[in-house]
């Protein structure tokens, strides 16, 4: 008798578990349809505006800081690239394909972006001029997960090291002027060897290491500040000043962007400051003050 009850209980349980387990979709479309739609979105953003300023951060820990690349997505497969550190325009191809989301890849060699992906073996680290280990180099990426895309900006995340980078669109007819401005700002910046950081009544020292990129000696757009605990900041030099890789808090002051101010008697090389001048970055041409 007990056995029979047991059997009936088991059967009753099976009856419940036998129910259709189909869950209602959270989104109306299938995952494949949504992925394909996001790829189409990325294409329409890239091809819609065509010309972009790409804040490109190589390195596993953004240790070199940022480089400005200027892609022009001329068709659904072709792209030309210029950069603040390079002198020529190079063309190659790109593609957006489905991976763990839409993935933007620069899939044929373009020296402007793939320079950063070359192992040190190729960029001349054996002669002491290149950067990075012989097998990995600067660890630059050329495949990116597209986090978001619209006509104004595209957020990208490197697939290997996860650096988050931004592309913002610019008007095609202004691109030559913009590139010249970015190049001038970076050429000037390349002469600097150290910085005094004036923040919250204190002066900190930021001394970047030098690296030879594409034959030119250049301070990495990164340095470590002797705060407690110490803080390494990475940034990129733009036409108007400096943009940090992310928002940093230095001695209680939050910074993400600095504007360049021309030379004064107090600051003979000019200086970079945030909106309310609570954070100043004063360049000099020597490593020591």
């Amino acid at each position: 008798m007990k056995k029979q009850y047991l059997l009936i209980t088991v059967l009753a349980i099976l009856l419940f578990t036998g129910c259709d387990k189909k869950k209602d979709r959270i989104f109306e479309d299938s995952p494949a349809a949504r992925l394909n739609a996001s790829i189409d979105d990325a294409y329409s953003a890239l091809n819609g505006k065509k010309t972009w300023v790409f804040s490109f951060y190589p390195g596993a820990n953004v240790e070199y800081g940022g480089f400005n690349l200027f892609p022009n997505f001329t068709s659904s497969v072709d792209v030309t690239l210029q950069a603040d550190y390079a002198t020529t325009t190079q063309s190659s191809t790109f593609k957006v394909y489905a991976g763990a989301g839409p993935i933007l890849t620069f899939d044929t060699y373009n020296p402007v972006i793939h320079y950063f992906s070359l192992p040190g073996y190729y960029t001349g680290n054996s002669t002491g001029l290149g950067i990075g280990a012989s097998d990995s180099g600067m660890k630059g990426e050329f495949e990116f997960l597209v986090l978001s895309s619209n006509q104004d900006s595209v957020m990208l995340k490197g697939r290997k090291y996860g650096n988050v980078m931004k592309m913002k669109s610019v008007a095609a007819d202004q691109l030559p002027t913009i590139i010249t401005n970015y190049k001038n700002a970076n050429t000037k910046f390349n002469t600097y060897r150290g910085f005094a950081i004036e923040v919250n009544g204190k002066t900190l020292q930021g001394v970047p290491t030098l690296a030879t990129v594409n034959g030119t000696s250049r301070p990495n757009r990164s340095f470590t500040l002797a705060t407690a605990p110490s803080l390494t900041v990475s940034y990129i030099v733009t036409d108007t000043g400096i943009e940090f890789y992310k928002e940093y808090t230095v001695e209680g002051v939050k910074v993400n962007k600095l504007t360049f101010f021309a030379a004064t008697t107090q600051y003979p090389l000019g200086y970079y400051a945030n909106g309310n001048s609570t954070f100043k970055m004063v360049p000099r041409t020597t490593t020591t003050p």
Binding site: S92, D107, Y109, P119
Partner: peptide
């Protein structure tokens, strides 16, 4: 496959795509 496809290459190494002209 002359255009770089990561899963077709060797992920152990740091590689870059081939040039179109070299292809």
């Amino acid at each position: 496959i002359y255009k770089y496809v990561d899963r077709e290459s060797d992920l152990t190494y740091n590689l870059v795509p081939a040039t179109y002209e070299g292809s």
